[in-house]
Design a protein around this nucleic acid. Structure first.
Length: 252
DNA sequence: TAAATTTGACCATT
DNA sequence: AATGGTCAAATTTA
């Protein structure tokens, strides 16, 4: 029980390292670094990728990793229940959400989106949700607070319990088509789809809705001929379906 | 035209 | 000053 949580946390850290390495590699590839250095970074990235991939061969944590995950840990009034999960399908069919903000987060490629319950106003429901796209196909979803609203679509629940009857999760369509991600110089990034780069401001990332980019904004590729691992990342990401990896209380 | 989203401003925290 | 969360006016969508 406890172990699966730790296991997932470690994997999470490695994935983070992998992401950082990709960043490093893009800088190295585009810069005037020695071939030796470029090679080293490639090896590093490959090694991390292998570790992430090996996860599939290990014992997967159950869909319901911990009983305690289902029990909101409430300490005091200043803290509210928070649950985080990484998923390729950041949908919540049981509740309606209203987006109220979007923010560029330092160190993150994609913007973070902020949602509150649609009925927060008329029913005083305080449930909130953040969606942070981390890779082309994975989203970190942070739920904060519990739904107190009563609507036709929300069932009995004292929800908040992670309740992915496996079918409910797996039958959902992935929010976006797989596509490649590459970094450009500086903090800029661009999407690659069919050998074309897409301008950053053309990319919509709210709740998995990815608006098809305007073709007129495509640019040709110059230097980044082979940044390996990106294809691999895609496949890895798609292999990793729903899993809960963390939870905790957060001050508000 | 009501509801939902977008987006820069605003604010609190560090 | 930088950062992240929220507000709210403008804009888009159904």
């Amino acid at each position: 029980m406890e172990n699966s949580l730790i296991f997932d946390s470690v994997i999470q850290e490695i994935e983070h390292a992998f992401d950082l390495t990709k960043k490093l590699q893009s800088h190295v590839e585009l810069g005037s670094c020695s071939d030796r250095l470029k090679e080293l970074v490639r090896v590093l990235e490959d090694d991390l990728l292998q570790i992430v991939r090996s996860r599939k061969n290990d014992v997967k944590p159950q869909k319901k990793p911990m009983a305690s995950l289902d029990v909101p840990v409430r300490i005091d009034r200043r803290k509210i229940y928070v649950r985080r999960e990484i998923t390729a399908t950041p949908f919540d069919h049981d509740h309606q959400w209203r987006k109220y903000g979007e923010k560029k987060i330092t160190g993150c490629i994609f913007s973070r989106s902020y949602y509150r319950c649609t009925y927060s106003k008329d029913q005083g429901c305080t449930a909130k949700m953040q969606v942070q796209r981390q890779t082309p196909s994975l989203f970190l979803v942070t739920h904060a607070g519990r739904h107190t609203c009563r609507t036709s679509s929300s069932r009995t629940d004292d929800d908040d319990t992670v309740n992915p009857s496996a079918s409910h999760v797996t039958e959902m369509t992935p929010p976006v088509e797989p596509f490649l991600l590459r970094f450009h110089s500086g903090d800029d990034y661009k999407m690659e789809e069919d050998k074309s780069y897409v301008r950053k401001d053309m990319v919509q990332t709210s709740l998995g809705k990815l608006e098809s980019a305007d073709p007129t904004f495509h640019e040709s590729v110059e230097s980044s001929s082979t940044i390996g691992g990106m294809d691999s990342l895609n496949s890895v990401a798609l292999d990793m379906d729903f899993s809960v990896f963390d939870f905790g209380d957060v001050e508000y």
